[in-house]
Write a protein that binds this DNA or RNA. Structure first.
Lengths: 128, 128
DNA sequence: CCATAAAACATACATTTGTAGTAGTAATGC
DNA sequence: GCATTACTACTACAAATGTATGTTTTATGG
């Protein structure tokens, strides 16, 4: 259970923690757009679940409210997401790339950047 | 509801249909590795749900069993998956690429290929 | 024809996720 | 010091998903 799987809503909540470093339930709630903002208790329940999954932790109490912080990094969480998706594609990246291009979400700049990173990696680490 | 969202198990079942063109429940079930193969009725229930979602349809009856075929293409289903994932990243591909590289799943060849495709697209379609 | 085997169909149930209400408790404003 | 407000803790519930059992129907082999 290295990286717990996080749901959509859980991820949206984590985003506030990742961005701010820490936050109260109220702050996490208010980070949602006024239109279509879940109830306070909805966020609360979800944060409790995140806590049960060890994805967040309480770091202190200020006044009568608790302050939470992420216990898993954005990187790790995102990595988990992508690995899960990739598994559905039999671990192959190529179809994923193809779809990204198709939907116009992948720019040439993105690709150039990736290429640069890959070349750099290859130089340092032939073992891939 | 252009493209229904398909769950992990549903996708694994669809895979058989996409690959074979058509299949009976029994065939879909037997496509799973003997080790860790869901019960016949599990597949059946899931196929029925796929039918309710209009992702598969019965095309004929042979003997006492039905033959099903996919009613959504693999491409469309995969596209939906990736769009959903991308939404979690604010629609940006870059983080996805970064993670693919990090996990060693994206080869330089994949990137070169993507680049070629992109360049070709750009020439034909400046509106992107 | 009819017993049997296979498949269909209906139903059930646990877990996860999104959603929220309610009751109790703790700060805070005077 | 106490009313009001804000937050916590507990509970509830529906939809989606994975999983399966029980019951009925349909072919099929003799």
């Amino acid at each position: 259970m290295a990286e717990p799987k996080l749901s959509k809503l859980e991820l949206r909540i984590m985003e506030t923690l990742w961005r701010n470093g820490q936050a109260s339930i109220r702050e996490m709630q208010e980070a949602f757009p006024e239109k279509d903002r879940p109830a306070y208790t909805t966020i609360q329940t979800t944060v409790y679940r995140l806590e049960a999954k060890k994805a967040v932790q309480r770091i202190k109490k200020v006044g009568n409210f608790h302050i939470f912080a992420a216990a898993v990094s954005r990187r790790a969480a995102q990595r988990r997401l992508i690995d899960d998706l990739l598994a559905l594609f039999g671990g192959r990246s190529q179809p994923v790339m193809a779809h990204l291009i198709e939907s116009g979400k992948l720019t040439l700049a993105d690709v150039k950047e990736a290429e640069k990173t890959l070349l750099k990696l290859e130089r340092k680490d032939g073992s891939r």
